[in-house]
């Protein structure tokens, strides 16, 4: 296992919620074969808040997409909550996502023709429940992210920060096993970004959610319990990273 824990090195005795074993992703681009992820091993315990960092093309978003079940590995195993999701059919994987994953996008990706309330309600329509129960869940989610008073607003009537709050409410409304975020603060000003990261921290600490985010922003990554660095599809050990950083610092002549 190649985990790089910047905050603590305590290992959970229980089996990890997410287990990546020799996880590999390759795809063809013209005549070339690209390998954004190479035989990666990673354990993520339940309740973890993990930040993935690395330069562009390092494979962090690929890893996030694989964990979120919106992409398929080319090799290795990806076991989440005891299910090897790499073996699920396309439709089963869609069902699995609807139950186990909440996705927060950089550009919020709200449906513009639906109100904030309806956007949050969207994932719940994939589950059997009464309209009353659905209403209760949507209201709770909107209240939790502090946007209940804007429930009847359309995305175009909301600020970026408010849109991202709605997107987070949509991600948590089904009470998913994991919440993933691809640059969730990438399109926000500093104040809004702070508020969103505080909200995500609360999801982890107060509700015990497992969060994985991809970010370029060290300030956002600092909210996570631990940060992993990827380079060329592999995890980079903290020591290696520190050495590499030192070597890039200009030496006095």
């Amino acid at each position: 296992m190649t985990t790089n824990n910047t905050h603590s090195r305590t290992l959970s005795p229980a089996p990890a919620l997410i287990q990546c074993r020799r996880l590999t992703k390759t795809y063809k681009k013209g005549d070339n074969t690209i390998t954004p992820l190479q035989e990666l091993d990673l354990d993520v315990p339940a309740g973890d808040f993990l930040a993935l960092m690395g330069p562009s093309g390092s494979g962090k978003t690929t890893l996030l997409n694989l964990i979120a079940g919106i992409d398929r590995p080319s090799g290795g195993n990806l076991i989440i909550g005891g299910t090897d999701i790499a073996t699920l059919s396309r439709s089963k994987l869609a069902d699995w996502r609807s139950t186990h994953v909440g996705y927060v996008f950089q550009l919020y990706n709200l449906v513009p023709v639906l109100t904030a309330y309806e956007n949050v309600e969207l994932p719940l329509l994939l589950h059997s429940m009464s309209a009353r129960e659905r209403h209760q869940k949507v209201s709770t989610a909107l209240e939790l992210v502090g946007i209940a008073d804007r429930h009847d607003h359309y995305p175009r009537q909301l600020s970026g920060g408010q849109e991202q709050r709605v997107a987070i409410a949509r991600a948590i409304v089904t009470d998913p096993t994991i919440i993933v975020g691809d640059e969730p603060t990438g399109d926000l000003d500093q104040e809004s970004a702070q508020a969103i990261m505080n909200l995500m921290t609360r999801l982890c600490e107060d509700l015990g959610k497992t969060l994985i985010i991809v970010t370029h922003d060290a300030k956002s990554a600092a909210y996570a319990k631990r940060t992993l660095h990827l380079e060329k599809g592999r995890l980079v050990e903290a020591a290696d990273l520190a050495a590499r950083r030192e070597s890039t610092v200009p030496q006095p002549v």
Binding site: R90, R97, S98, V101, F105, N109, P112, L122, P123, L126
Partner: peptide, 14 residues
């Protein structure tokens, strides 16, 4: 197309 991708990511089948 991005919205269609989002709907799939949420769990809607194609």
């Amino acid at each position: 197309i991005r919205e269609l991708g989002t709907l799939q990511a949420i769990g809607y089948r194609r």
